[in-house]
Design a protein around this nucleic acid. Structure first.
Lengths: 148, 148
DNA sequence: CTAGACCTTCGAGTTGGCTTCAAGGTCTAG
DNA sequence: CTAGACCTTGAAGCCAACTCGAAGGTCTAG
């Protein structure tokens, strides 16, 4: 199979396939004329890559897993994959906590700014998001559009 | 005030302050010798910038807001700031939804891989994250560490 | 023989917010 | 006069995962 056929059958652009080749993620044979020659197995490998990308794994990580996946037993694959997934889950949870914190800050800031008086002593601090930034005023509700 | 003093008092590196100058975020006067000369107001402006960065606003956006903040009335500041914040809140909520979806996929994949048989017909599809990716198996619980 | 569809490589550009580097100007204490 | 602390600029590097462009090789139909 040449690169354009792989591109059509996998839905991944030929430029990206070449890129995957240069970083060693997908290794292609070569025809005598230098064209890349892919076997049918590449489609399964690309499916794996796409699935792993859906899980937000980095390409070097996927390349490492792909090395295990190819030709090893299910047990070995599982033992390689499972820790990566749980680790990734931990990272995603940490990220989720950060984003939720950001959201709380946003809700608090939106409320403070909305409540900003037209003038007065507190006016600058209210409107400019300055002052007492410590009291973050936790609003744990989520996509629920706080006040306003 | 010279740049190093601003750096110490604001906690922002001098290199970053110069960068803020080049992108027009903070405009500094100049001494006759060419050194940047900051007035005291810069510290408040930097506080605003830091606060806005905490809310994940982009620097060009912050620059725009800073233009309004400077010297305009509280009402004008509020009217400029409030829509930005609610818009940002909407983006954050959208991002949050995406991350939650990713998390659900991760939990489902982790379970499937953990349940991967040592061999057999389903072995490859289970272990390689292939097949029936449509049944995402929603687990709406959050940082609660799914199965395992 | 030639148009044109396909393939190759290499290098640079994209995104944002810096950081680092290199080369050089300015000021002050001793 | 000189060491050294401070300041300046412009350019390049960093992160990921591509994406694009240029220049050129290969193959086939007409």
């Amino acid at each position: 199979m040449r690169i354009s056929e792989v591109a059509v059958r996998s839905g991944i652009p030929a430029t990206t396939l070449r890129y995957y080749d240069t970083i060693g993620l997908i290794d292609a044979q070569r025809e005598p004329n230098g064209y890349r020659a892919y076997d049918d197995g590449v489609l399964e490998r690309l499916s794996f890559i796409e699935a792993a990308k859906q899980l937000d794994l980095a390409l070097p990580e996927i390349a490492e897993l792909l090395g295990v996946v190819e030709g090893d037993s299910c047990t070995q694959v599982r033992d390689a994959l499972h820790p990566k997934l749980t680790e990734r889950l931990r990272e995603v949870d940490a990220h989720l906590a950060n984003v939720r914190l950001l959201r709380n800050r946003l809700v608090a800031a939106t409320r403070r700014v909305a409540a900003c008086p037209d003038s007065g002593a507190s006016c600058r601090s209210e409107c400019m998001l300055l002052g007492e930034r410590r009291r973050v005023c936790h609003t744990d509700d989520e996509p629920n559009d706080g006040g306003e």
